[in-house]
Design a protein around this nucleic acid. Sequence first.
DNA 1: ATAAGTTGCGCAATCGATTGCGCATTTTTT
DNA 2: AAAAAATGCGCAATCGATTGCGCAACTTAT
Lengths: 343, 343
Amino acid sequence: MIRKPATIHDIANHLNISPSTVSRALSDHPRISAATKKLVVETARVLNYNPNRLASNLRKGAGSTIGVVLPLINRHFFANIISGIEKVTANRGFSVIICQSSEKLENEIESLHTLLRNRVAGILISLSSESRDNSHLKALKNSNVPIVLFDRSIEDPEFDKVIINDFRGAYLATSHMIDQGYTNILHFSGPLQISTYRRRFEGYRQALLDRGIPFDPKKVYENVINREKAELLTEELIRSGLPMDAIFSASDMSALGALIRLKAHHIKVPEEIGVAGYVNEPFAAFIDPSLTSIEQFGEKIGIRAAETLLKKIDGSANPEDTQLIEPELIVRKSTDRIIQQQR
Amino acid sequence: MIRKPATIHDIANHLNISPSTVSRALSDHPRISAATKKLVVETARVLNYNPNRLASNLRKGAGSTIGVVLPLINRHFFANIISGIEKVTANRGFSVIICQSSEKLENEIESLHTLLRNRVAGILISLSSESRDNSHLKALKNSNVPIVLFDRSIEDPEFDKVIINDFRGAYLATSHMIDQGYTNILHFSGPLQISTYRRRFEGYRQALLDRGIPFDPKKVYENVINREKAELLTEELIRSGLPMDAIFSASDMSALGALIRLKAHHIKVPEEIGVAGYVNEPFAAFIDPSLTSIEQFGEKIGIRAAETLLKKIDGSANPEDTQLIEPELIVRKSTDRIIQQQR
DNA sequence: ATAAGTTGCGCAATCGATTGCGCATTTTTT
DNA sequence: AAAAAATGCGCAATCGATTGCGCAACTTAT
């Protein structure tokens, strides 16, 4: 049996009162008597009434959904962020619409249009790697939709953002390696024009300098972002006999690549060479040797970003421009050569 | 400057025509002249017009978003599914609202209400582990919203579903182990009242029987679903000296637990004992020895489920009740003792 | 006892897009 | 040339909930 969902009119008819009264009763308006409210709430339950958000939001001029745009859903880090966002918004009666840009600027722009069409109350976005141009974000500004960037953001102070202290993460990792007695530390980085990798690089450099270890740009390898590239590079480094006693990689995948080649050459990690990664992928704990890495607290980022957006939406506060989430160093076996595998 | 989004009225005013004409022009109605259409489309672009989905869907009685409910977003498998869903729906002009039940029936029910409030065009749902009772699903049936279950479903033929052939996956894994010469294969399972684990168990048993290996219920260990439990159990098995030469685990995490304890006792994998997991978590490829597992093609499941739902929505086809996705055996080192680590 | 305030509720407009119906004007048919 | 059909567009109702305004009835203040 096909049945249309009940409306406030149905409730009104059942009780011989007006729809306005029903609406007000349901939203606990002070000018409606307690008796009427009780009646309305009861018949609402009986008729299985579920308010039509479309109508409500249309009338109120937007309202109860927030939009999320991110590069890839099936990355552990981003999935955690979504999870965090969802937890916050669900509690506050918001639904979330998720859009995936697949790292393409075109999709990102299209996603924003979709969200605007749905008249979302606010937007959370993490930029695709293609997004050098930010005109689409600027355009959002005068469409009056609150927006908060997370993780991958732009340098514009006009926008609120929740980002990770990448400098600090890299600084922690590098300092730790120095503490472990490594002195000749290479850095496998990503594309340095991307702010995330740039800041990790800067953290690495600063840690060296602060400990009195000379920084040598030749020890920084750009664009080593996946396992294959890391394997090739590591192989080459080993063969060339370049002096080194540690590798700090800006991603766990490339750290893994390094580990694999070191292992193949029977070079002991962490005894001879230390390796640290970044992002703390789930596998980092499970490989052998387990990989020292930087935890980024994806869920926390999602929670903070969502909370910030909700504050902007209800205007209850004007949040700071930029919120930094502090990462944490997770020391595992791949760098732990002092208290070697004690525990 | 705060500006309201343009409406068809704005376009109509600009051109001194009626909103109806604008609406029809935009939807390419045959009774509107080509000239008018062109004018309308142009000024729509100039005014930065973005149709209000709320209004449109309200008028049309639902329409352009579909809802997804699943137990956990930050699981590799489910994240892949979402990714697949998103790919399909985005192409067809649908947005997706994501709800996370966190394995709680209460949240699952609440999520369904949220989706109904948003008048979604259809619902994709994977049940929480708590969901024994299905009355909330039955209730959906007469609310006239198309619904497709995926992965975690119920046995009711009333519902369309896209699920994995768990029997087959387990059968493949077990057969492979037998082919590798293992004859005394234990099975680490999950709670057997959950259909997924039950079917994996049955696949395991059938593979044994088909190869003439007696099935012994004592070799099946229930509820070994995480690493800790697997570690404890494996430790106990080793100490007790129970004869065995392989472990087929219904999850990668427990397979990992087994590997860890075997390694600790210097028992060689795969030479002395073979180990296979299930789900093919990302880490399976990276641990040492790499773990044989079953790939479930999460993205494909998402794609198929979404396609099925869209078909139901536009009524273009009445899909089959149940679609089985075939899993694939991924052989890695942990069971590969014949062609040992060649390649 | 009259003025003033309070309480309880209904009328009708509104949000923006869609669509059945109808009215002209033009084109085609016989 | 008259009838029939096609073309192009506007009017106004509609989807369901919200809300400013107003009108009674009743309570409190003077």
